[in-house]
Design a protein around this nucleic acid. Structure first.
Length: 363
DNA sequence: AAGACGGGGTC
DNA sequence: GACCCAGTCTT
């Protein structure tokens, strides 16, 4: 990749892609301004997450926290609630912490220096480069999954792009190729190309503005590049959970995840749950007895439809059980609220799914 | 260098 | 159902 495009070839490639971007640039909410705060929020939400998934969250988040200072002032519970369903909840926790640090150490303004940005929690090389190049026009190349794929094809780089050695090489190529007169546009152009044209499968080379520079295309390697990521073997888990309903239609949520289900419930509010080894009903009953302490948990648990919830390599089968109880216990680390109002607490998608079957099951 | 961390679009 | 995404952090 290094020195692959010497002048004037490099300048031609840059102009071709930048011209294409000016006409194909989509109107996305975070492109409406160059406010570093708004760009930062977008970049964090977009980590490992598609644009379509982010869209409904982005505007709502900015309405609730219009400024960096507003975010820094907020309660973490509210930040997580607005992140609820988006996944990778550490991002929200880090975002909140970083906002506080920026208020304390940088006067409430997103830092201009690369090393200051990198020192913030949740901001790595990619995000720092993206925010600083777009908001402040700093000449930093943003290397993400899309850009890596585009560069690998342009330079006919084979093998797993994620191995550090190869990623470093791609980063070098990205720096070399960076259009320094318009780094923000350049980075976004590369990402946009990767997402809409230079896609993982069936790239639309016919529509590609830089196909004539592409070594993979010349060598008919677009299908081989990039190499597939190696995948981890799936692990099956069964989780039994209890939806308890009192006469007023309220239920109880807990925030004491067992070690096994942290990935499912992400240390957010959840229904009382236990990983099933043998017999769901018995084991869930035991779990509830422990939760209740010396009181008496519900006697009859009614099975609701089973749910599948795959997350990463975990293939979870959720076994929801519903029980009517006369009175819910008031315990530390628990919350009692109406079943149809659990979205007022930060919960994972698994908890949302369970609540949905419970609502339809109890109707 | 490898693993953990969510969720859903897309083919 | 598999693949993979506008990655970062920990071990």
């Amino acid at each position: 990749m290094r020195h692959q495009w010497e002048e004037p070839e490099r300048a031609r490639l840059q102009l071709s892609l930048l011209r294409w971007f000016r006409t194909h640039r989509r109107d996305l909410p975070w492109r409406a301004s160059r406010d570093p705060y708004r760009i930062w929020i977008a970049e964090i939400m977009l980590q490992q997450t598609r644009i379509a998934a982010v869209l409904p969250y982005y505007d709502r988040f900015l309405r609730n926290f219009p400024t960096l200072r507003a975010l820094a002032r907020a309660r973490q519970e509210k930040v997580l609630r607005l992140w609820s369903g988006l996944g990778y909840y550490t991002r929200a926790r880090n975002l909140h912490r970083a906002a506080k640090e920026i208020v304390c150490n940088h006067g409430g303004k997103f830092p201009h220096r690369l090393r200051d940005a990198l020192a913030l929690p949740g901001i790595g090389r990619y995000t720092a480069a993206a925010v600083l190049s777009i908001a402040y026009r700093l000449p930093l190349a943003a290397l993400d999954g899309n850009v890596a794929r585009v560069l690998a094809r342009l330079g006919a780089i084979r093998g797993d792009l994620r191995v550090p050695r190869r990623w470093q090489r791609l980063a070098g190529g990205a720096e070399h190729l960076l259009a320094r007169q318009a780094p923000g546009d350049w980075n976004q152009a590369l990402m946009e190309l990767g997402e809409t044209i230079c896609t993982p499968q069936n790239p639309r080379c016919k529509d590609c503005p830089v196909s004539r520079f592409c070594l993979a295309r010349a060598r008919r390697l677009t299908r081989e590049i990039p190499a597939a990521r190696r995948k981890r073997a799936a692990v099956n888990v069964r989780i039994a959970c209890a939806i308890l309903a009192d006469p007023r239609g309220r239920t109880i949520l807990v925030r004491e995840p067992g070690a096994h289900d942290s990935v499912l419930f992400s240390r957010l509010w959840q229904f009382p749950a236990v990983e099933v080894r043998r017999e769901p009903l018995t084991e869930l009953g035991n779990h509830l007895r422990k939760l209740w302490g010396f009181g008496s948990p519900p006697a009859r648990l009614e099975a609701l439809p089973t749910l599948r919830h795959p997350v990463t390599f975990h293939k979870a089968t959720l076994l929801p059980f519903m029980a009517r109880v006369a009175k819910l216990p008031h315990l530390a680390g628990t919350r009692i609220l109406a079943l149809n109002q659990i979205l007022e607490l930060p919960v994972s998608s698994a908890t949302r799914k369970i609540a949905a079957v419970a609502v339809s099951g109890s109707a």
